[in-house]
Design a protein around this nucleic acid. Structure first.
Length: 758
DNA sequence: TCCGAATTAATTTTT
DNA sequence: TTAATTCGGA
């Protein structure tokens, strides 16, 4: 029973649960991964379930790899025969195995979002849609949403013109994808579900195969994924799902929290286990996280508790603007590092990537090693995608999107006209571009130079295909770079950027070689599948650098110290360009905040700026409502050094990086910070913030020594039309509205977003 | 065919 | 602000 050693009662219950559906509500830091891995180990080791009859689904490859690794250690027999993987990877594997039954080609390629977008753009043009009225990204969104809901083109409404456009594009897109032998991410799951529904034998084969199905991060499954899970476990009914509805942060991608919230309704005989003991954070951190998320109406009631200590107060640092925020936070980080903390133990989180820039500048200024997670991914680089496109065309020349990507890259005299004619020919024949290329001799429209360029390109690809029949992928890749002239073109360019691209390509080939050494099946097809499904390589995880990332990217991670920047209205909670308040959006922002805060083990720092450049425009900012929702007793309200009032016309210092901070920790980062602290605010009365609380927060007492970076009475602001005026009152916070007296114009009430500090 | 100016748009994104 | 994409002229 060593598997149960060190587990608490609830964890053990989940591990040993024998038969039937089980839902585990696993709060942040409650030992979720442990439960899931130990459960699998228990099934194999104690209950003698054959490993190949266990399916464990994760959301990331990283999580899958981690689970496999842990299981390898837990199980004497190893984890090789277990089915562990993401929904997408598992479906891809099943689709290849049952390609004939499903009706897909065994050698299908997988289109990522960019490929999909390219295809949709082309289809939309071909069916004659106005790109301005129906932007491809919206069409793609609608198509993906449909697939996430398990719907095909025929299942969609066709009321308004947009719906009609979607339906038309969707249907044609499916045809084209079929011709191209390509599946998009959504297809992988959708097609599998459809096939099981349509084919009872296939359904039965799979249902009897998987005796136990386990799903991690169940709160982020979408509807088709639910359908798939449901189908797979129909026979044995041994479904174990683990998740936390409070950490569901992918609604915008179709994740449906109802899947976990309604689990007991979907499976009435389900056992429910709640893991509420947190092993990660201090009590204060949990309290403020809970204070925010518990305001959500639609959630499973639960509250994390911990035996950990009370911990330090959560520091809230008010800053002047985003540069001041960056300078202040970097100073804070320097002090944390000086106090003995390792860089890898600190994370700086933000709501959107755009926020990282100023921090990166400040960190570079002080030579603090950092890594930015997410953003531009390695495999998304143009040159990498180009090489992969060549490889994909070699493997499957019907892959139109890839073919069109490389047909004149590097330039080889195949111009717009020649390509248009080729596309016409393909459309006429209802076949792929490659087929059109094979028939180019019969096409009278292709004449002279264009025709010979096309023929030359065709021979180039055919030659590489012959090579690929016998050689390893890395050899093929090297030949691609040489024979296509791709490398030569970069060499000729002779710029630093081109050198970097060549370096990246060398790196790709290096990693291909590495994979070939390890892989059981070092084929081009398996390499290509791997790189499309495995987006992040995460090789930098071991180096000691500070981590910068979005809150989304931080899910599942933990750090000794977490700093969350930009706790301002409009930013966090984020409101992009959606004009109206969607309560569901706000609830998701709360969950996001909950995820952010619960990443912290020992200390949590929050910051906001009083003004910030948004798309180049200086905007006034209002501190996040989330701050107001936290118990004031757990907060330390502070302001940055430069948060002190300055003469309105005083020039901004060139750089605030050199200034000494007015706060610090003594000895260790765990010590009480020497921040200037404000008198405690009266407890506000959420959820409906009264005007009074608004003022007690935003409109600090006059004559205060502390500069309030936010908008308050007396602040001078500039409006594009009315000029400079004085703020008379803050009338609402969301949207931030203020009354301003403009000389010559009188008193105006307007949105603070139109104002900048004067 | 290609380069640079003009235009436009701008969350989060495990796959 | 920026980055990405498109368009127009050489």
């Amino acid at each position: 029973m060593s598997l149960l050693a060190g587990l608490n009662e609830e964890q053990s219950a989940a591990v040993v649960h024998a038969q039937g559906p089980l839902v585990v509500f696993a709060g942040a830091g409650s030992g979720k991964t442990r439960v899931i891995t130990h459960r699998v180990a228990h099934l194999v080791g104690e209950r003698k379930v054959a490993p190949w009859r266990i399916l464990a689904v994760t959301f990331t490859n990283k999580a899958a790899a981690e689970m496999r690794e842990r299981l390898t250690r837990l199980l004497p027999s190893g984890a090789n025969d277990l089915w562990v993987g993401t929904f997408h990877a598992i479906c891809a594997r099943l689709l290849r195995r049952y390609a004939d039954e499903v009706g897909v080609r065994k050698d299908f390629v997988i289109y990522d979002d960019a490929d999909q977008r390219a295809m949709i753009t082309r289809v939309a043009r071909d069916v004659g849609l106005d790109e301005r009225r129906f932007p491809p990204r919206m069409l793609a969104g609608a198509i993906n949403r449909a697939k996430n809901d398990g719907l095909g083109p025929d299942d969609l409404p066709s009321g308004d013109s947009f719906e009609q456009a979607v339906q038309k594009v969707f249907a044609t897109y499916e045809e084209r994808m079929n011709v191209a032998g390509a599946l998009d991410f959504g297809d992988l799951i959708y097609r599998m579900v459809r096939a099981m529904q349509a084919n009872p034998e296939l359904k039965h084969a799979l249902q009897s195969r998987f005796e136990h199905v386990l799903v991690d991060e169940y709160q982020d499954t979408n509807h088709v994924q639910y359908m798939l899970v449901r189908l797979l476990c129909e026979e044995h009914r041994n479904l174990c799902v683990v998740g936390d509805d409070d950490q569901s942060i992918y609604r915008f991608r179709g994740a449906d929290r109802r899947n976990i919230l309604d689990f007991s309704r979907h499976f009435p005989d389900a056992r429910v286990v709640k893991l509420e003991q947190n092993y990660r954070s201090t009590q204060r951190i949990l309290r403020i996280a809970h204070a925010v998320v518990s305001r959500n109406i639609d959630r499973e009631p639960k509250q994390l508790w911990t035996q950990n200590g009370e911990g330090n107060k959560v520091a809230v640092i008010g800053c002047v603007d985003e540069r001041d925020e960056a300078a202040t936070i970097v100073q804070l980080i320097r002090m944390l590092l000086e106090s003995g903390l390792a860089r890898r133990e600190i994370a700086l989180l933000y709501r959107i990537h755009a926020q990282s820039r100023v921090f990166e500048e400040a960190l570079r200024y002080f030579n603090i090693p950092y890594r930015v997670v997410g953003g531009l991914r390695f495999y998304d680089r143009a040159e990498v995608k180009d090489l992969h496109a060549y490889l994909r065309v070699i493997q499957n020349p019907r892959d139109d999107v890839s073919l069109l990507r490389i047909i004149n890259n590097p330039p080889r005299g195949i111009g717009k006209t020649a390509i248009t004619r080729l596309l016409d020919s393909a459309a006429r024949g209802g076949h792929s571009v490659w087929t059109a290329l094979e028939q180019v001799e019969q096409d009278p429209a292709q004449a002279g130079a264009a025709r010979s360029s096309l023929l030359k390109f065709r021979e180039l690809i055919q030659g590489l295909q012959r090579l690929a029949a016998t050689e390893l992928p890395s050899i093929v890749a090297q030949n691609v770079l040489v024979e296509t002239g791709y490398d030569k073109a970069l060499q000729t360019e002779d710029s630093a950027e081109a050198d970097a691209r060549r370096e990246n390509l060398r790196e790709v080939i290096g990693s291909m070689k590495e994979l070939e050494r390890e892989a059981t099946d070092p084929s081009l097809a398996s390499y290509l599948e791997l790189v499309t499904l495995q987006t992040d390589t995460d090789k930098t995880a071991n180096e000691d650098s500070l981590t910068l990332m979005t809150v989304h990217a931080a899910k599942g991670l933990e750090f000794k110290v977490v700093i969350v920047a930009g706790l301002e209205e409009e930013l966090f909670p984020h409101r992009g360009y959606s004009p109206e308040d969607d309560p569901d959006d706000l609830e998701e922002e709360r969950r996001l905040a909950y995820v952010a805060f619960t990443r912290a083990e020992h200390r949590l720092f929050l910051s906001y700026a009083g003004s910030r450049r948004v798309y180049g425009e200086l905007k006034m900012r209002v501190p996040s409502r989330f701050l107001r929702e936290m118990p004031p007793a757990d907060l330390d309200m502070l302001s940055s050094e430069s948060g002190r009032p300055r003469a309105p016309s005083a020039p901004r210092p060139q750089s605030s990086y050199g200034s000494q901070p007015s706060y610090g920790s003594q000895g260790s980062y765990g010590g009480q910070a020497r921040y200037r602290s404000e008198p405690p605010r009266p407890r506000s009365e959420p959820p409906r913030p009264s005007r009074a609380t608004t003022e007690s927060y935003v409109d600090r007492s006059e004559g205060s020594d502390y500069g309030d970076p936010g908008i308050r009475r007396g602040t001078y602001v500039r409006h594009p039309k009315f000029g400079v005026g004085e703020v008379h009152a803050v009338t609402s916070e969301s949207p931030p509205r203020v009354t301003v007296r403009f000389p010559g114009w009188g008193e105006k009430t307007l949105l603070a977003t139109y104002l900048e500090p004067a």
